[in-house]
Deep mutational scan, measured.
Amino acid sequence: IRVTEDENDEPIEIPSEDDGTVLLSTVTAQFPGACGLRYRNPVSQCMRGVRLVEGILHAPDAGWGNLVYVVN
């Protein structure tokens, strides 16, 4: 998935696990201090948080898609 520190920055590609999840530790390896991800909902244009359970980030209902995710 494509992740950036700010919406206007160049994104970095972060690998997902075989089950489609992303480990928070993978994100923090590239973005120290990150505690989660958010993205701009293409329909509402509002920022939406990615579900985080026990250090594992779960894809939105429509999958990770071609969105750019921003670190929290």
Rank of each mutant, 00 (worst) to 15 (best):
residue 1 I to F: 04
residue 1 I to M: 01
residue 2 R to G: 02
residue 2 R to L: 08
residue 2 R to A: 06
residue 2 R to K: 15
residue 2 R to D: 00
residue 3 V to G: 00
residue 3 V to E: 01
residue 4 T to A: 10
residue 4 T to S: 10
residue 5 E to D: 09
residue 5 E to A: 14
residue 5 E to Y: 05
residue 6 D to A: 10
residue 8 N to R: 13
residue 8 N to F: 08
residue 8 N to Y: 15
residue 8 N to I: 07
residue 8 N to T: 12
residue 9 D to K: 14
residue 9 D to N: 13
residue 9 D to Q: 13
residue 10 E to N: 09
residue 10 E to F: 13
residue 10 E to G: 06
residue 10 E to S: 10
residue 11 P to K: 06
residue 11 P to C: 11
residue 11 P to D: 04
residue 13 E to A: 08
residue 13 E to C: 08
residue 13 E to M: 13
residue 15 P to T: 13
residue 15 P to C: 11
residue 15 P to K: 15
residue 16 S to P: 06
residue 16 S to I: 15
residue 16 S to Q: 14
residue 17 E to G: 06
residue 17 E to R: 14
residue 17 E to M: 07
residue 18 D to S: 11
residue 18 D to A: 14
residue 18 D to V: 12
residue 18 D to H: 11
residue 18 D to R: 13
residue 20 G to I: 02
residue 20 G to S: 05
residue 20 G to A: 04
residue 20 G to P: 00
residue 20 G to R: 06
residue 21 T to Y: 07
residue 21 T to M: 04
residue 22 V to Q: 02
residue 23 L to V: 05
residue 23 L to F: 03
residue 23 L to I: 05
residue 24 L to W: 07
residue 25 S to Q: 10
residue 25 S to A: 13
residue 25 S to W: 01
residue 25 S to G: 07
residue 25 S to C: 07
residue 25 S to R: 11
residue 25 S to M: 06
residue 26 T to L: 11
residue 26 T to V: 11
residue 26 T to W: 07
residue 26 T to F: 06
residue 27 V to H: 03
residue 27 V to A: 01
residue 27 V to M: 00
residue 28 T to H: 07
residue 29 A to N: 09
residue 29 A to D: 15
residue 30 Q to T: 09
residue 30 Q to S: 12
residue 31 F to V: 02
residue 31 F to E: 01
residue 31 F to D: 04
residue 32 P to G: 05
residue 32 P to E: 06
residue 32 P to K: 06
residue 33 G to Y: 06
residue 33 G to K: 12
residue 34 A to S: 04
residue 34 A to W: 00
residue 35 C to S: 14
residue 36 G to L: 01
residue 36 G to Q: 02
residue 36 G to P: 01
residue 36 G to F: 01
residue 36 G to V: 01
residue 37 L to K: 00
residue 37 L to T: 00
residue 37 L to G: 01
residue 38 R to H: 12
residue 38 R to P: 03
residue 38 R to S: 14
residue 38 R to T: 15
residue 38 R to W: 15
residue 39 Y to R: 02
residue 40 R to E: 08
residue 40 R to G: 04
residue 40 R to Y: 15
residue 41 N to D: 15
residue 41 N to P: 07
residue 41 N to W: 05
residue 41 N to K: 06
residue 42 P to W: 04
residue 42 P to N: 09
residue 42 P to C: 07
residue 43 V to E: 04
residue 43 V to S: 05
residue 44 S to W: 05
residue 45 Q to I: 04
residue 45 Q to T: 09
residue 45 Q to G: 13
residue 45 Q to W: 06
residue 45 Q to H: 08
residue 46 C to F: 13
residue 46 C to Q: 15
residue 46 C to R: 13
residue 46 C to M: 13
residue 47 M to L: 12
residue 47 M to A: 05
residue 47 M to T: 12
residue 47 M to N: 09
residue 48 R to G: 11
residue 48 R to D: 15
residue 48 R to A: 15
residue 48 R to L: 15
residue 49 G to Q: 15
residue 49 G to F: 15
residue 49 G to S: 15
residue 49 G to E: 14
residue 50 V to R: 00
residue 50 V to L: 04
residue 50 V to G: 00
residue 50 V to A: 02
residue 50 V to C: 09
residue 50 V to Q: 03
residue 51 R to F: 07
residue 51 R to D: 14
residue 51 R to H: 06
residue 51 R to C: 09
residue 52 L to E: 12
residue 52 L to D: 12
residue 52 L to A: 08
residue 52 L to P: 08
residue 53 V to E: 15
residue 53 V to T: 14
residue 53 V to L: 08
residue 54 E to M: 07
residue 54 E to Q: 13
residue 54 E to R: 12
residue 56 I to W: 05
residue 56 I to H: 09
residue 56 I to F: 07
residue 57 L to Q: 00
residue 57 L to N: 02
residue 57 L to C: 03
residue 57 L to R: 02
residue 58 H to F: 12
residue 59 A to I: 05
residue 59 A to G: 04
residue 59 A to C: 08
residue 60 P to G: 01
residue 60 P to W: 03
residue 60 P to K: 00
residue 61 D to E: 11
residue 61 D to P: 10
residue 61 D to L: 10
residue 61 D to H: 07
residue 61 D to W: 07
residue 61 D to N: 14
residue 61 D to C: 10
residue 61 D to T: 07
residue 62 A to K: 09
residue 62 A to D: 15
residue 64 W to L: 02
residue 64 W to R: 03
residue 65 G to A: 07
residue 65 G to W: 02
residue 65 G to I: 03
residue 65 G to K: 06
residue 65 G to D: 06
residue 66 N to D: 13
residue 66 N to A: 10
residue 67 L to A: 10
residue 67 L to R: 12
residue 67 L to F: 11
residue 68 V to Y: 01
residue 68 V to S: 07
residue 68 V to I: 11
residue 68 V to W: 03
residue 69 Y to E: 06
residue 69 Y to T: 06
residue 70 V to L: 13
residue 70 V to N: 06
residue 70 V to S: 08
residue 70 V to C: 08
residue 70 V to M: 14
residue 70 V to A: 05
residue 70 V to G: 05
residue 70 V to R: 08
residue 71 V to M: 03
residue 71 V to T: 11
residue 71 V to L: 04
residue 71 V to W: 03
residue 72 N to W: 05
residue 72 N to V: 09
residue 72 N to D: 15
